[in-house]
Amino acid sequence: MNQGLRCKLQLLGGCVLFLLVVNLIGSQAWAKELKILAFGDSLTAGYRLPQGDGFPEQLESRLRAEGHDIKVINAGVSGDTTQGGLARLNWALADQPDVVILELGANDALRGIDPAITKQNLDQMITLFKEKGVTVLLAGMLAPPNLGAEYGEQFNSIYQTLAKKHAVALYPFFLDGVAGNPDLNLDDGIHPTKEGVAIIVDRILPYVLKVIN
């Protein structure tokens, strides 16, 4: 083999190695940069829970325990309605999330807000998230029974309707397995304890894994 050909082969080999290293670094950077935005109300914020016991922290711990290097951002605001969420959505997008768990609507129902307004606000939020390239996992909510059957039917159908319209993943009821159980809720009967949050994480985790994969 002449000297010129040998140099060319060495140069080509070096270029291939360089590209492989760049690709590996890029893949590792993506894994480290994956961010999930927990965008909701007090149920997301960790109302009256010590630091580390709330939904975002427990979900992040579970994901990391399963080998996923993922950051879960707490974007929950206690008392927030869907109107409040819509108003602060652009601020939340500054974190540049890859996935959002959209958990809003409980306070709309508690205040008896017209379900048509709740639906419109959630519709706009899902649209805006998708326009920014954020994958949406919509977390459903159920209206309190004391508001009547008609209100309940209108409100409860919002989440499935929007999930179908926008072709996004739906977790049917965020408080599944926890709502109504005094052992899993604080003394207000509404907000989950640390143990209640753990059950929420257990049940929503398969949906989250499906979305990120």
Results as ranks from 00 to 15, higher is better:
G84T: 01
G84A: 04
G85K: 01
R88T: 01
L89N: 01
L89G: 03
A92T: 00
L93I: 06
L93P: 08
A94L: 14
A94C: 10
A94F: 00
D95T: 13
Q96E: 15
Q96S: 14
Q96H: 15
P97Y: 04
P97E: 07
D98W: 09
D98T: 14
D98N: 14
D98L: 03
V99M: 01
V100A: 15
I101E: 03
I101D: 04
E103M: 01
L104N: 05
L104A: 03
G105S: 07
G105D: 08
A109L: 00
L110E: 10
L110H: 02
I113N: 08
D114P: 01
D114M: 00
D114K: 00
T118G: 03
T118I: 10
T118S: 08
K119N: 12
Q120P: 06
L122E: 06
L122V: 04
M125N: 01
M125R: 03
M125Q: 13
I126W: 00
T127A: 15
T127H: 13
T127W: 09
T127V: 11
T127S: 14
F129R: 08
E131S: 15
E131L: 14
G133W: 06
G133P: 10
T135L: 12
T135F: 01
V136N: 05
V136A: 05
L137D: 06
L138H: 05
A139S: 15
G140P: 09
L142S: 14
L142I: 15
A143G: 13
P144C: 11
P144N: 11
P144G: 08
P145N: 03
L147W: 03
L147S: 06
G148M: 07
G148F: 07
E150M: 08
E153N: 13
E153T: 08
E153L: 05
Q154Y: 09
N156L: 03
S157Y: 04
S157I: 04
S157C: 09
I158Q: 04
L162S: 13
K164S: 14
K164C: 11
K165M: 03
K165I: 07
A167S: 12
A167G: 15
V168E: 06
A169G: 08
A169I: 10
L170E: 11
L175H: 05
D176M: 06
D176T: 03
G177R: 01
G177D: 08
G177F: 01
V178D: 02
V178A: 00
A179E: 08
G180T: 07
G180D: 04
N181F: 07
P182S: 12
P182G: 12
N185M: 14
